[in-house]
Design a protein around this nucleic acid. Structure first.
Length: 495
RNA sequence: GGGCUCGUAGCUCAGCCAGGCAGAGCAGCGGCCUUUUAAGCCGCUGGUCGCGGGUUCAAAUCCCGUCGAGCCCGCCA
């Protein structure tokens, strides 16, 4: 059974309706590793629904978190924003409303492409709208109890000035430099390192510290399940404290946890937005079809780490297509529902695309002529990915270009020309890949050259290199008439 | 100081929760086909299941220990 189906069974044994939470801080490029959180949730949601349950997904973007430090990818002037909430910092490119949006927007676009339907909540808006008011008050009231739980579970002392609530300083704009001195029903009194003394509102005047914020949002949003990176799941980590706080302070059952491992970039290591070692999600969905991006993550159990190796993508796509034919569950869960999918191999699109100069109409024409059952919309869709994949990841030996005969830049000897001439003459309309392939041997035999030399002559005449795609199906794709004319032209020009 | 995950064929992994003849894909080799190519199909090769112990009629699977790899937590989400 697929891992998502097992999780779904477990969830359904607890209840019929589920709300699955996800949370990623938009402090830097949101990358493939972060995407695992979303896809894990999405696939569990689907599995729950497939079993007749109800499930929805919420994404809480931690836009109200402080900027921890000036990351390597940020200009020096961002030093002054350290400690301020991401939602209050200017956008690095100037094109978005704020810093958080800059990273959030491309990510949310990607989610759409990936078919992940999710309710997006921005933490700064949640706080400002007052969604946290009750939980902030509860936390302040239960401060000692919370403190005790944190200290017991983490084995670390909270200092004297510790508070579950972090006020946002009205003067310097930082959210990690204030100290709570008192609170009443109208707000929280604080002093800031910058010298300012003020009163923070329960609505957007500050936020709960992470370890409290997390269980608080479980309660606010009614969360029953949440995937989390393994950092949260470590003993004494935030899930350990969260589940106790959930029960003892907020009076709820903690959500069912799905712990997932990191995604590494082959030969580089784990992706870390703070270090700038990332493959942003937006870039991946530009280059790879969504069903493949989904498959990369969905096929592996969450607790296994994934080595993402861009150089073996074609093998992965082959594997996907084969699994598709088998009716594999991972593939089923990977296919985006709104996307049509037909069974022309991606590999083949790469070849035909090159033959057709990436003209979709010509590609469709070739595919139809060579007997493929196609869905035109899907062909057009995946053709774009094939072209991008070829230019970005493919080894040179898979690339070719069909140039004019005059520009081939290769020399032919007498035997080769003789072969090409006789081959052209022997070709008949209606021959298929295998006929053409066999014809190579026949003609080579007649001319008295080795088959190897014959194949080379064919490739030289078509693409100007001594190798190329499987000759029979290559020529079939090009069309008998075209190849015939081509060879005769080559003979003419080189004689 | 605590904790998690992984270790099964050359490579990537499934099987483990619920014990019952060790599996798949790729790679390799051979064939279909006078074949050195980037398609397809068929077959073959290949493993002390990290190691040691325990439970059991029976252990890759459960228990204890140990080694190796990767990683996390100690108010950073």
């Amino acid at each position: 059974m697929h891992w998502a189906d097992k999780v779904a069974e477990e969830l359904l044994s607890r209840g019929k309706k589920h709300r699955i939470a996800t949370g990623i801080t938009p402090s830097g490029h949101i990358h493939l590793g972060n995407l695992r959180e979303m896809l894990t949730a999405d696939v569990v949601r689907r599995a729950v629904e497939d079993r007749g349950g109800k499930a929805e997904m919420v994404y809480i973007a931690d836009t109200f978190d402080p900027l921890r430090k000036r990351y390597p990818f940020l200009p020096e002037e961002y030093e002054k924003y350290v400690g301020m909430p991401l939602s209050e910092i200017p956008c690095p490119c100037g094109g978005h409303e704020n810093y958080a949006e800059h990273f959030l927007e491309p990510f949310l676009e990607s989610l759409e492409i990936l078919g992940i339907d999710v309710e997006v909540k921005k933490a700064d808006e949640m706080y400002r709208k007052g969604e946290y008011v009750q939980e902030i008050k509860t936390s302040l009231r239960e401060k000692e109890k919370i403190k005790k739980i944190l200290e017991e579970v983490t084995g670390k002392k909270c200092d004297e000035s510790w508070s579950p609530f972090m006020p946002l300083c009205e003067s310097c704009g930082r959210i990690n430099s204030t100290r709570v001195v008192d609170f009443d029903d109208s707000g929280v009194y604080y002093v800031c390192e910058c010298g300012h003394e003020g009163k923070a509102s329960y609505r957007g005047g500050g936020k709960l510290g992470w370890r409290i914020d997390w269980p608080a949002r479980w309660k606010i949003l009614g969360i029953t399940c949440e995937p989390m990176g393994k950092d949260h799941a470590a003993a004494g980590g935030s899930y350990d404290t969260g589940k106790l706080l959930a029960k003892e302070v907020f009076g709820i059952e903690p959500p069912y946890p799905i712990v997932y491992e990191w995604i590494h970039l082959k030969g580089v290591g784990a992706m870390k937005s703070s270090k700038g070692i990332v493959v942003p999600v937006r870039e991946i969905v530009e280059v790879l079809p969504p069903e493949i991006v989904r498959y990369i993550i969905i096929r592996s159990k969450p607790e296994r780490h994934i080595d993402f190796d861009p150089s073996s993508l074609l093998d992965l796509i082959d594997e996907f297509e084969e699994a598709y034919a088998r009716g594999d569950r991972s593939v089923e869960l990977s296919l985006v529902k709104s996307v049509r999918y037909c069974r022309v191999p991606f590999r083949h699109l790469v070849v035909v695309g090159q033959i057709a100069g990436w003209n979709p109409d010509r590609v469709v024409e070739i595919l139809k002529r060579t007997g493929y059952e196609i869905d035109v919309e899907d062909i057009r869709r995946r053709l774009k990915y094939a072209e991008k994949w070829l230019s970005r990841f493919a080894p040179d030996r898979l690339k070719f270009e069909i140039r004019d005969v005059e520009e081939l830049n290769v020399k032919f000897d007498e035997e080769e020309l003789e072969f090409l001439r006789r081959f052209a003459e022997a070709m008949k309309e209606g021959m298929n890949a295998s006929d053409l392939h066999n014809l190579v041997y026949e003609v080579a035999n007649d001319v008295g050259i080795k088959p190897g030399k014959a194949f080379k002559a064919i490739y030289k005449a078509i693409v100007g290199k001594s190798y190329g795609p499987r000759a029979g199906y290559f020529m079939e794709s090009l069309g008998v008439e075209w190849v015939k004319d081509r060879f005769l032209r080559v003979v003419e020009v080189n004689s």
